[in-house]
């Protein structure tokens, strides 16, 4: 992994996190789904056509046709195929919450849980993995990039929230930024992976996560060293002053 890419993605995710107004999440007043039942049916049908046709307008048109609507109905989706991609991203992100019971039982540490959620999320791209670079290209268009980065930030927040992360200081930001960077690079790696069952991708993911963990230990021990040296010099100064 080139470090340039890593830091750029991390910085982008971090700035996005501070800019986006994160709203209060109520446990009893649940927010409504942004999609109507009709839209969901059309999108799901359209996604079935993606392996053959790719992330293009044709898939949306075929989706509309499958559900018994006029071909021109696809025009109600103002952003065209990007709406379909966003639906897939939203749908797979919110699906992760339904896996919480199983993952809580099978994995122990928040780190292992986060890794597992990443794998489960990446597996959702599997049906059209050969077409996924097309989706990434659409997501990277200037008009779409801010929504795409926001979605990535939401995903890493979702993963840490489900993994039971309770960080309450600046760590909150570093965790989310580093997971966003890891996830996006692994997603890209997966599109080029020909190994059986994507074994290479999971190994790649583990290496990326280990890198981040290393970085954290380095940061942690640096701050411990600074604090220790500070205290030691203060004590030295005090003893010198006391001697007069």
């Amino acid at each position: 992994m080139s470090s340039g890419r890593f830091s750029k993605a991390a910085i982008r995710a971090a700035t996005q996190l501070t800019n986006s107004p994160r709203l209060y999440h109520s446990l009893t007043h649940l927010p409504p789904s942004p999609y109507t039942a009709t839209q969901i049916r059309i999108f799901n049908s359209a996604l079935n056509h993606v392996p053959d046709h790719g992330f293009v307008k044709d898939s949306l048109v075929l989706g509309c046709r499958d559900q018994g609507y006029l071909d021109s109905t696809h025009a109600v989706f103002h952003n065209g195929v990007f709406d379909l991609i966003q639906y897939h991203l939203y749908n797979e992100r919110t699906r992760l919450a339904s896996l919480k019971e199983v993952i809580d039982l099978e994995e122990n540490s928040p780190h292992d849980k986060a890794r597992r959620y990443c794998i489960e999320r990446l597996k959702a791209n599997q049906p059209f993995i050969e077409r996924w670079p097309e989706a990434l290209a659409v997501m990277g268009l200037p008009s779409n990039i801010s929504s795409s980065v926001k979605e990535l930030a939401e995903l890493s927040d979702e993963i840490w929230y489900l993994s039971g992360d309770k960080s309450s200081d600046f760590d909150w930001y570093t965790r989310r930024a580093s997971l966003s960077a890891v996830y996006s690079t692994t997603e890209l790696y997966m599109t080029q992976d020909n190994s059986p069952d994507f074994n290479n991708t999971w190994q790649f993911l583990d290496r990326q996560l280990a890198n981040v963990a290393n970085l954290k230990t380095t940061l942690g021990s640096t701050s411990t060293w600074v604090a220790f040296t500070g205290m030691a010099s203060l004590n030295l100064l005090k003893s010198q002053l006391a001697r007069g």
Binding site: L17, T18, Y24, H25, L27, Y161, K166, S168, D169, F170
Partner: peptide
């Protein structure tokens, strides 16, 4: 943590 509010950036 439960209400998923981001902490203050300036906490350090």
């Amino acid at each position: 943590a439960t209400h998923r509010v981001r902490p203050s950036v300036f906490s350090p």
